[in-house]
Design a protein around this nucleic acid. Structure first.
Lengths: 145, 145
DNA sequence: TATTGTTATACTCTATAACTATA
DNA sequence: TATAGTTATAGAGTATAACAATA
């Protein structure tokens, strides 16, 4: 998008930010008793990209390191991730998803995903595909701010 | 979407919820000093649909009435909305956007929208259009839970 | 008695600043 | 001195429960 349609970009930005805000509220409100949306998202990163340091997870999740410290601690308490020392650098920590953590994702547990899946089920297959492409574009927006 | 592709719906639900979560974090983090994303969204409802009761705004924004009481109070303090008594029903209150409130929206002020517009500007026009359609679909997902 | 809105209170999420340990 | 992570603290956002006023 170059500068030939700046008003259109602004309009879409406004509509999209409000839609994202409202949907995120619904997703949080529907969270399960087992796991929160933030925790689930962190697990998903670890499974997709493998074990990594807390600061790396924080960068992916777009939160500051102290925030991720808390999330990781809660996941350790739940037994969904493990935290081990880096083999050569004593400062670093390596966080990895546990077997149980992987099971949580496989079972589609928690955090409004069931609710959202039910909502998607009311759409046409074409609309679902459109949202699938949109999710990829949203990821693109978030990357390397 | 009927039951012929349940796995696909689940996958899209997971991807979409995580993408929405991350983008909403970026939007909040980029908020201006003038107005928050929640406030902006409330102003947008009032301008699009006209004056209405706090409970009606809360329903649109997918928050509980006490939460909206707070948002409205903050907007009154900022002079961006007015709060008047209902002409016949003494219990009700009518909230309306003020001139200054309308100006805020016109000026594209605040709450990460400028940031998002800049991000959108890096996409192709086709991708922006795709996100515009996606925003409409997201609204559809949120309606009448 | 039902409805509308508010107040009181508490919890989740996230941030910044300061601290500890290691390199 | 720089880096990785944590602890301490604070603020935004939202919820539930209880209350007041009106219908």
């Amino acid at each position: 998008m170059t500068s030939d349609e700046p008003a259109e970009v602004n309009r879409v930005a406004g509509d999209l930010s409000i839609a994202v805000l409202r949907l995120s509220r619904c997703l949080r409100a529907q969270r399960s008793n087992r796991i929160t949306l933030t925790q689930l998202s962190t697990l998903a990163v670890l499974r997709r990209l493998g074990p990594m340091a807390p600061s790396a997870i924080a960068a992916h999740e777009r939160v500051q390191p102290p925030s991720m410290t808390r999330v990781v601690a809660s996941l350790v308490d739940l037994g969904l991730v493990t935290r081990e020392q880096h083999p050569s650098d004593g400062r670093q920590v390596i966080v990895a998803i546990s077997e149980e953590g992987g099971r949580i994702i496989d079972e589609q547990v928690g955090a409004g995903r069931d609710w959202l899946a039910a909502r998607l089920d009311a759409l046409t297959p074409e609309q679902v595909q459109e949202l699938a492409r949109a999710a990829a574009l949203l990821d693109l927006l978030v990357v390397d701010e």
